[in-house]
């Protein structure tokens, strides 16, 4: 436990409150703006709205197509989450607990992907997906997001599996279980917190993906939420109230998902990276 010299300093508390407040203020400002008229936004940009008007949200919802973008983002994010977990979990296990762990170079092939900028692949990727007929397709985008996230996901799952005791594997082996059974029946259930963290990472990563979506989705029908918001910004650029309302609509899902899952998210991040 901390000693008396660690007594909270009032200045510390003030600093924490000020920084947290400054972090949260942009959210509040955007929400207030969403309820203001154009005149109010020009006239008193800092204050609370004089009356809480909802028509900006109506404008944003009808002209912004947000329901549609939301559905697209949800489809992509869910598909990516399921695929990513399915793909990365066995690989992470293979690197952590099977004899592959003695062959570090295979893992370096994946680590290499961790440092690779997406810009290095976007140009051929576009034409490659075009030849598969996967441009302007949510499937195409999902597959590519899964692939680009593979290195990180495998890295994360490897550290989770590595923390599980080897003794369990040995015991199962002595009981005559084959490698597959050990993975499926013994190790996987124990790695549930890791799986959950990976799922949350994958979901938010896919939900927030921008560059690949910008590359691969050029028609309105398949656009995802960040792309839709940037398009909405370029159209509503001077209708500030509606723009703010659109930002709020685009923010809500991310914030809700985060609030619901922040524990496993932060735990996953803390556990995965410190090792």
């Amino acid at each position: 436990m901390r000693t008396a010299s660690h007594r909270r300093h009032p200045a510390l508390l003030v600093a924490v409150i000020v920084i947290t407040g400054a972090t949260l203020y942009p959210f509040a400002w955007v929400v207030f703006g969403a309820f203001k008229s154009q005149q109010e936004i020009f006239g008193s940009p800092l204050l609370l709205p004089q009356e809480w008007r909802w028509d900006n949200f109506a404008t944003a919802w009808t002209t912004g197509n947000f329901g549609h973008y939301f559905a697209n983002s949800m489809m992509v994010a869910l598909a990516v989450t399921v695929l990513e977990v399915a793909v990365a979990c066995p690989a992470g296990y293979a690197f952590a607990k099977t004899r592959l762990r003695n062959h570090a170079w295979v893992f370096y092939v994946y680590l290499f992907g961790l440092t690779l900028p997406v810009q290095a692949i976007i140009i051929p990727l576009f034409y490659q997906l075009q030849s598969y007929g996967l441009v302007n397709s949510r499937t195409g985008l999902s597959l590519v997001i899964v692939a680009t996230a593979v290195p990180f996901a495998v890295f994360l799952m490897r550290s989770f599996f590595r923390d599980l005791p080897d003794a369990m594997v040995e015991a199962a082996r002595i009981d005559g279980a084959n490698e597959w059974k050990i993975f499926w029946r013994v190790m996987l259930p124990m790695a549930t917190p890791g799986l959950l963290a990976l799922a949350v990472f994958s979901f938010l990563g896919a939900w927030n993906e921008f560059l690949l979506a910008l590359l691969l989705l050029t028609d309105d029908a398949s656009r995802t939420l960040p792309l839709g918001l940037v398009r909405f910004q370029s159209e509503m650029t001077a209708n500030y109230g509606a723009l703010f309302a659109g930002i709020v609509l685009a923010m809500i899902p991310s914030v809700l998902v985060y609030v619901a899952l922040q524990r496993s998210f932060i735990r996953g991040l803390s556990a995965g990276s410190v090792k």
């Binding site: 927030n208 960040p226 918001l229 991310s254 985060y258």
Partner: peptide, 15 residues
């Protein structure tokens, strides 16, 4: 709370 901005897409942050 301090982590909250990171839940947004970077593009949304930009907007």
């Amino acid at each position: 709370l301090a982590f909250l901005p990171h839940a947004l897409a970077l593009a949304v942050t930009g907007v």
